[in-house]
Design a protein around this nucleic acid. Structure first.
Lengths: 231, 231
DNA sequence: GGATGTGAAGTAGTTCACAGCC
DNA sequence: GGCTGTGAACTACTTCACATCC
């Protein structure tokens, strides 16, 4: 295996999930022309405590200024480096139904180094059409080399697609199908399941639990419960 | 505040995120005609240890059989009860772009008690059209009463939509816009951000970290790294 | 003065190891 | 025999409190 890039000290799992959120917040302030932010403000927007924010950011090195908070541009940049945004990687998407189309047409999906290289579908009426600048290939054609495979097919086809992607030497899968798939050791599968999101949200609503009295802080689903209105 | 429904002992945050995954696995086995599963098998598919599975499930009461594992039908049912699937709730979706359409047309989004009651958009050419059996209303019309509001609009419109939903007394938001929004105390916001998913997946790939040697276990994004091939 | 960065303390979650039961 | 369910040990994460520096 190639030496993993040592970008920073090792970051904890919860920290990694929060960093992209802090970055989003920093970008939002930058877009509104604000130049500095402090840990308390980030915490309120992200739904975590100011101490947690400082600890997370301290893991990236000393990027704040005592007494004056953080520069939003430096913050955004340093988080980007820590998460490896400067690395380029290729993405293939399988399944050009509503969701697949929504993803590849979304301005927000393919950013930060992600590059779309091919689209696949099994429907003959879709194969050959052009979507987001790519001619859709048949799933029976060879899978082009890529780093990440995105699965947007119905549940009953997810395992077969997963197998094909793994066979094509793709070892990072983002699975939008409501189906748990089996992959060999060494392949990472990340699941995104909308109905699970709804379920978690409803659980907290029904039980009135969660940090900060009603909110949810959850992984990629971060929930801010009482963000102060930003200036 | 009304008494929260005491369905079980309180479940921990990580447990709540994993239960829907176990349920998915149980349903998959049920669909294939298998009737029993053990904690080791669930763990391999979900990307967690067998002990974690047993602890999570023990929180729902004694639903396994010593020496013989769990009945997949009982498992699915009990998890459903614990998460409150028998409760009905109403959902409104704002933003009928690619993603909004994908969601409301997805078989998998609205299940387990979720009921779509209204769709909104700001584009005059979309307002009045029918999508998924609902006539799209203008965002300027009053928001109908609902429990959950789903935000599928561009980032720059997310805060305004959030404000409108909160003003309409909706206190649970599922936000697909790549934008952190401010809400009053007592409102839960759950974020789903595709590019953040990709970022987290890439971080683990670049660093070779994660449980079980390369995999990712993450919240709703659970990642199974080495699930054994199921029978 | 004011906010960061960090040892120390506290809390929560996971894993171990095994008793209990089918 | 085999797998669940759980006290006990361990690990990880968060929060407190404050020294540090701009």
């Amino acid at each position: 295996m190639a030496t993993p890039r040592l970008r920073t000290r090792k970051l904890s799992e919860p920290t990694i999930a929060r960093l992209p959120v802090y970055q989003r917040i920093a970008e939002g302030w930058l877009a509104r022309g604000l130049s500095r932010i402090d840990s308390k403000q980030i915490g309120e927007l992200a739904g975590v405590t100011a101490t947690t924010v400082r600890r997370d950011l301290a893991g990236l090195g000393s990027l704040g200024t005592r007494g004056a908070g953080y520069s939003v541009s430096i913050l955004s940049e340093r988080i980007g480096e820590a998460l490896g945004h400067d690395l380029r990687y290729d993405v293939v998407v399988v399944g050009m139904g509503n969701l697949g189309r929504a993803l590849v047409n979304s301005a927000n999906f393919l950013i930060r180094g992600a590059q779309l290289v091919a689209l696949y579908d099994s429907d003959p009426s879709v194969v050959g059409t052009e979507i987001a600048g790519h001619v859709v290939k048949s799933i029976d054609e060879p899978i082009v080399p890529a780093t990440v495979g995105v699965i947007c097919v119905p549940a009953d086809a997810a395992q077969a697609v997963s197998d094909r992607l793994v066979a094509a030497d793709i070892h990072a899968l983002l699975n939008f199908a409501p189906q748990v798939v089996s992959v060999p050791l060494g392949t990472a599968v990340h699941y995104v399941d909308f109905s699970i999101e709804l379920q978690i949200l409803m659980y907290h609503l029904n039980n009135g639990t969660g940090p900060l009295g009603g909110g949810v802080l959850h992984s990629l689903g971060i929930a801010a419960v009482n963000p102060a209105r930003v200036p």
